[in-house]
Design a protein around this nucleic acid. Structure first.
Lengths: 237, 237
DNA sequence: GAGTGGTCTAGACCACGTC
DNA sequence: ACGTGGTCTAGACCACTCG
């Protein structure tokens, strides 16, 4: 009876249902907004709003101007475990890939200087990388290294695990890290690298690393597609 | 020149600016969508989309059909620290309040049975509470207690800290907890209690608690307004 | 060039909150 | 009773992706 009333609920239920029955599979494309609006006799604005709400739930995601797709299961991210990215992903029977985007050297701008607790102008390297799971770009990572601790690091292969490189090349062990997890939106260059659109939500993770002498040696900003991840922590006392 | 082109960027910048200059203060109401659409010569749909993107960023929030408001600073939530809710909030110079909404007793439904690792039908109590910071409802909490561990608990004051009550009345110490943090949307009754609208994002936290004998005694589902909180963790090794 | 989502207009009615 | 956001129509053009 109320079919005309709550059409946008309708389309949400049907898509949710098709996803849970696996008629639509992870990474698969959903029919276009125009097709859906014909199918359900809705305007594109209404369709868009329904899709948007499934996106927030984490069931589907967007690639900018490419279309809507079904989200794969979330990765469990455990900040207290030692493994690095590729190991974490393969432990969960998924395929990881890392792409080096960009390397910059500069004096730390004020936001980063604050995070690294620098009291005077200090040279840093910024390493920008893009990480894929099962071929999908889900994570943009920006590492900010205090240059003096890492002489000659730019000549290394920077698509490998940096934590491992720190240990092998410089003998640094991670004695302590601080993490912040913030649901927010991402800066322009991140949005672009992830094929997202300004105004979409990400999970931002700020991490500050201390070596065995309790010096801050670098910090890391991670921006995750919010449907791709959940944070999992075990607190033993 | 491009004023007609990117109006929705315009309104975003101006509101962002007014918020950062504190011309608009936390908890203060923003002019209505209709007023803004006149001010900026935009349709309400465009205004709504601009507001929505500031909402995702965490700068403003909505109360269902009441209007848009400026977000106060985020609370830092540290899952590894022992303090309970009221202490955590007052440590950050903010004012906490807890409201008991509802108490139910039932056999654990399957989703909760899974979380509590129950192998057979088991009676539980569900305690639903709403938590306020500075007068704003930001957190819906659902505690699921395995009844056999907590005889007669329903006669206690359930708006106090449950962790403390567990210790005082039953001698339980928390030996270990497991946390999951998930950006997603919330069930109907949660949305309603938080004055939110279906399809809005929340930060969902699932917590499972073990006592000193390593038994799971309860679990907790928290749903936070996503602009109200950041998760903060220190990992000492 | 065809198809996609992103943005936009100029209205309308509804459901709910507030007074 | 009035103001608020929530939903919706029926179009349009733009920016980008893909083959």
């Amino acid at each position: 009876m109320d079919i005309t009333k709550k059409n946008s609920q309708n389309i949400k239920e049907i898509l949710r249902d098709q996803i849970s029955r696996q008629l639509l599979l992870p990474l698969q494309k959903i029919p276009s907004e125009r097709e859906l609006s014909e199918l359900f006799s809705l305007t594109r604005i209404s369709v868009k709003s329904a899709l948007h709400s499934l996106e927030v739930e984490g069931l589907i995601y967007r690639e900018n101007r490419r279309g809507w797709f079904v989200s794969p299961p979330r990765i469990e991210y455990n900040p207290l475990s030692r493994g690095h990215f590729h190991q974490m992903i393969s432990d969960q029977q998924r395929v990881a890939k890392t792409l080096l985007l960009n390397v910059k050297s500069m004096v730390a701008p004020s936001a980063i200087a604050t995070t690294l607790k620098l009291s005077k102008p200090t040279p840093i390297h910024i390493i920008e990388r893009l990480r894929y799971i099962d071929g999908r770009a889900v994570l943009f990572v920006e590492n900010c290294l205090i240059s003096q601790y890492f002489p000659d690091i730019l000549s290394e292969d920077l698509s490998q695990s940096l934590t491992e490189l720190y240990a092998k090349k410089y003998g640094f062990r991670n004695s302590c890290s601080h993490f912040d997890f913030i649901p927010t939106s991402a800066p322009e260059h991140v949005i672009h690298a992830l094929n997202m659109h300004p105004g979409q939500q990400v999970l931002k993770i700020c991490r500050v690393n201390y070596n065995q002498h309790n010096n801050i040696i670098d910090c890391e900003f991670e921006y995750w597609r919010p449907d791709a991840v959940m944070v999992s922590i075990n607190n033993r006392e």
